[in-house]
Amino acid sequence: MSENMTDQSRRSFIKKAATGSAIATIAPGVVLYNVAQASRDPGEAVTDKVRWGMLIDANKCADGCTDCVTACHEENGVHQLGRPATDAQWIRKVTLRDKQTGKEYGIPMLCQHCEHPPCVDVCPTGASFKRADGIVLVDKHICIGCRYCMMACPYKARSFIHEDVTDQRDHAPRGKGTVESCTFCVHKVDAGEGTTACVEACTHNALIFGDLNDPDSEVSRELNNYPSRQLRADLRLNQGVRYRNI
């Protein structure tokens, strides 16, 4: 409970800081860029002026650390039932080895928020959709649970809810028989926080979240200055999530 309170107060602090000025410095070296988001009036629809994205640095992602996974599932009320084959996973840690050199990498895998998402193309009802600002979501109100999106996703980012769910978070409704995945913490984005639970939780600064359309955002500057990679770039999906040093 007390942990929850701290979390809440910290969140409201960030919110205040973010709305107070367009760019807020909350700690030396940690800067919140909220230019585009702050310009959205309350009650106004999201637009494609912003495209949310993430850069993940494999070199910085620490061996054995799963803080981002814990934080995500805590934030979104994704409870594990000890059944890995059917439990929902919005983000997961994967350790890879280069077949030739033997070099090992650890990276978190999450919904890649593609510009051309295969899950959206195949969804029969349009429940799987991409918001104007690039966030790929499932509208659970019209999801019929056909699981075709899971067949289509190249990244295994989607989970089907296999059993009854209770104690959901109010910003992350979840229910048996529908499909879900990472939302880029859309409730935080909409609140103007400009960050996600996994990014906030990463103490190794391996994750950077921001607006890819804003050339001055940290994520854009990092992507411009150093090489990065898209997973399965051959599919030409133009993902919102990029990886460095793999």
């Binding site: 890995p84 890879l96 895998m109 051959d234």
Partner: peptide, 22 residues
């Protein structure tokens, strides 16, 4: 298994990447 990471071998994964699904 889905080829999410071509050319790489999956050492461990929280979601059974790289191994055939049972």
């Amino acid at each position: 298994p889905l080829e999410v990471f071509p050319g790489m071998e999956v050492i461990s994964s929280g979601f059974m990447d790289g191994v055939p699904a049972a």
